[in-house]
Amino acid sequence: MARIASLMVNIAESNSDSLADKELMNQAIQVLDQIFVGQLLVEVSQNPFNPKQWQFIFTDTVTAFLYYRLLTLLLNPLSIQGGLSLAKADDDVHFYQTALHYSNQALEQVEIFEAGDFLYNANFFEDMITNALLTAWARLRQLRSPLQANLAFLYEMHLPLYLEGKLTPTDWQTRQLTEFFHFKANHPLIGASLAKVKLNLQAAKTTQWLDIYHDVDKEAFYLTGLYRKGYSTAIAKMTGMTRQNIDYHLQSGHIAAERHQAAAIVMQLNREQTALLL
């Protein structure tokens, strides 16, 4: 193993029963297990001393970031914080502990850093560039309402971002997602905010996966090509909202900008990861 990526996730500002948070997280993990096959190196664990904190060990940082991105959409509107790290396996037999230490440091910084909710630490000189991108990405997501975040996930069901070999292109399991959203609607902290949301996931169109490196428009001087129109009608049928209302929220929720920012982060993480392992 040349490297290990550690992702630490914290459910922030939760006043609910930790058992409800634990079950919600477990169900979200089961949903994501369908498309992150073989990317988690060990079973996800919960911090026995802090039940709001979860630890994920991945093959690489790109996969960990894509996982965190979808996890935040699933757990919306819970406030989620994350710390990501990378350690390489060299002569230091403690690289596993090093990765955990780095991600814990990143998460500690998140808790005192008001501008973002996710930071990266590989003890590398380009970490600051990566974190500048992550901070801008966080600000885009913080501008969304809970409804817009829900619509962002429904858009992601139709046109999810992925990297070949990192995620498995497959249709989302609508029955499993229906059960997840039903449980989420009964969560003691966030259930009230979701009570009026009625989802018909069976109305979704076929999932069309977009490979980030393949589908970015390389003829442009800026990131483009990862947002496509044509899904408002399907999302309207899933939610009972009008197509015009969906179009408004997709635009005001910065869906296109967030996707291209996420692509920039993936490219930077991949670039740094390659450089660090040389």
Results as ranks from 00 to 15, higher is better:
residue 252 S to K: 08
residue 79 S to T: 13
residue 149 A to Y: 07
residue 211 D to W: 05
residue 30 Q to P: 08
residue 30 Q to E: 13
residue 171 D to R: 13
residue 46 Q to Y: 01
residue 156 E to W: 02
residue 111 E to T: 06
residue 11 I to T: 07
residue 9 V to A: 11
residue 132 A to Q: 06
residue 221 F to L: 10
residue 208 Q to G: 06
residue 197 V to K: 09
residue 217 D to S: 03
residue 127 D to P: 06
residue 53 Q to D: 12
residue 212 I to A: 01
residue 44 V to M: 13
residue 276 L to M: 07
residue 56 F to G: 07
residue 196 K to C: 11
residue 102 Y to F: 07
residue 242 T to G: 14
residue 45 S to C: 04
residue 26 N to E: 02
residue 259 R to D: 14
residue 262 A to I: 12
residue 241 M to W: 08
residue 27 Q to T: 12
residue 12 A to G: 07
residue 185 A to H: 11
residue 94 H to I: 09
residue 250 L to Q: 05
residue 104 N to R: 07
residue 267 M to A: 11
residue 91 D to V: 05
residue 243 R to S: 11
residue 41 L to P: 02
residue 239 T to F: 02
residue 220 A to S: 05
residue 93 V to G: 14
residue 76 N to M: 03
residue 161 L to D: 05
residue 37 V to E: 15
residue 149 A to R: 06
residue 132 A to W: 04
residue 194 L to C: 05
residue 198 K to S: 08
residue 203 A to H: 12
residue 36 F to Q: 08
residue 253 G to T: 02
residue 142 Q to A: 06
residue 48 P to L: 03
residue 160 P to V: 05
residue 216 V to D: 02
residue 111 E to Q: 10
residue 144 R to M: 14
residue 234 A to V: 13
residue 186 N to M: 14
residue 251 Q to K: 12
residue 114 E to S: 09
residue 114 E to F: 08
residue 79 S to R: 10
residue 62 V to H: 01
residue 54 W to L: 04
residue 159 L to Y: 10
residue 264 A to N: 00
residue 81 Q to N: 15
residue 125 F to P: 11
residue 242 T to I: 10
residue 61 T to K: 02
residue 144 R to F: 12
residue 13 E to D: 12
residue 121 N to H: 15
residue 119 L to C: 01
residue 150 N to Q: 04
residue 14 S to M: 00
residue 181 F to E: 10
residue 240 G to M: 10
residue 126 E to P: 01
